[in-house]
């Protein structure tokens, strides 16, 4: 077996394992943080401070029956969770966890990630459409409109970084932040990116597609067992991806106080920054009410897009001048 193929197989296994591990860490974090924000202990029963709870939950979900509702499109209904899960794994392949911890280094890794994360919309569309449930369909409508709108300010804010670095390679962007993090010169782009990221990953206060008090559970109303857990995994994997792009673009990626074996241990700083951002996402979710759908769109078109365009223009002028 050629060593390159072997490396890829090991990497693929590691990535899938990490997606599951990430979902467990985030699931635990979400439930613990929300609990403490609400002044309750949260998970306490399985394992010390409930750390094993998510494993038990996972086993429960695996053991559950996937109920296919009557009148649904059976093929699409089963396809949707897979369609949602598979593209979420792929961005991990190009993420630079440390200087030498990157499975594949591509010149266009940023574009690759953005393309992969957009596929999730199709999965939601398929899931909602195939469920034969009006609530699911509502969730789908909202999700597609939301994701399509918010991709614009997201890309515009990323573009202002690209103008500075002139590269789409993630390692290249990190290398460009040699002396300072880009959040210092592009704070507006960071804020716009983060808000769009919340909307892209359907996190509260933009959790329109799920909106449980209106749409019961939105597009995954009809899913049970592993069907549901694939959406769950995909949501957390997407959150991780969005936050790691933010880390790479604005927070200097794996850079930090140098540690021994810096080429590999940079992963510590990377993870610290990513989970810090994820904490903010969770914190935001447990603070605000949900916005209404038209307000979500208004905010995007009236505030985010003009501001990101202005930011892009100013950046372009300054890059040209300096």
């Amino acid at each position: 077996m050629p060593p390159e193929l072997l490396r890829m197989i090991i990497a693929a296994v590691l990535v899938v394992a990490f997606v599951f591990l990430n979902a467990m860490i985030l699931g635990y974090m979400e439930r613990k943080v929300s609990a403490h924000i609400q002044r309750r202990p949260g998970l306490m029963e399985v394992g010390p401070h409930g750390v094993l709870q998510l494993i038990v939950d996972g086993l429960k979900l695996i053991g559950k029956q996937l109920v296919v509702p009557e009148g649904s499109n059976k093929f699409l209904f089963r396809l949707a969770p897979v369609l949602s899960f598979a593209p979420c794994v792929l961005p991990f392949v190009v993420l630079p966890f440390a200087r030498k911890l990157q499975i594949v280094s591509m010149d266009i890794s940023l574009i690759f990630i953005l393309a992969m994360t957009s596929i999730n919309v199709i999965a939601i569309l398929v899931a909602g459409w195939a469920s034969n449930n009006k609530y699911s369909l509502f969730g789908t409508f909202r999700s597609v409109a939301q994701a399509v709108s918010y991709e614009i300010p997201m890309l515009l804010s990323i573009l202002s970084i690209i103008l500075i670095t002139s590269t789409f390679s993630l390692q290249g962007i990190i290398a460009a932040q040699k002396y300072y993090w880009f959040i210092l010169i592009q704070p507006l782009a960071f804020i716009i990116y983060f808000i769009s990221g919340l909307a892209e990953t359907n996190r509260a206060p933009f959790d329109m597609p799920e909106a449980e008090s209106e749409l019961t559970a939105g597009f995954h109303t009809e899913y049970s067992g592993m069907g549901f857990s694939f959406f769950f995994l995909a949501e957390y994997a997407n959150m991780f991806t969005v936050c790691s792009i933010a880390t790479v673009l604005f927070l200097g990626g794996w850079k930090g106080i140098p540690l021994p074996l810096g080429d590999y241990t940079g992963i510590f700083w990377f993870m610290l920054k990513v989970y810090g951002l994820l904490f903010v996402m969770i914190w935001v979710r447990w603070t605000y009410p949900r916005v209404r759908f038209d307000q979500l769109m208004t905010f995007c078109w009236k505030y985010l897009i003009p501001f990101s365009l202005a930011n892009l223009l100013i950046t372009a002028v300054l890059v040209k001048l300096i």
Binding site: H36, R39, R40
Partner: peptide, 17 residues
């Protein structure tokens, strides 16, 4: 709003197990 919740995060829990 965020300030309120972060403060509450570090205050002792009020429920009993």
């Amino acid at each position: 709003g965020l300030n309120v919740t972060i403060k509450e995060l570090f205050r002792p829990i009020v429920t009993v197990q």
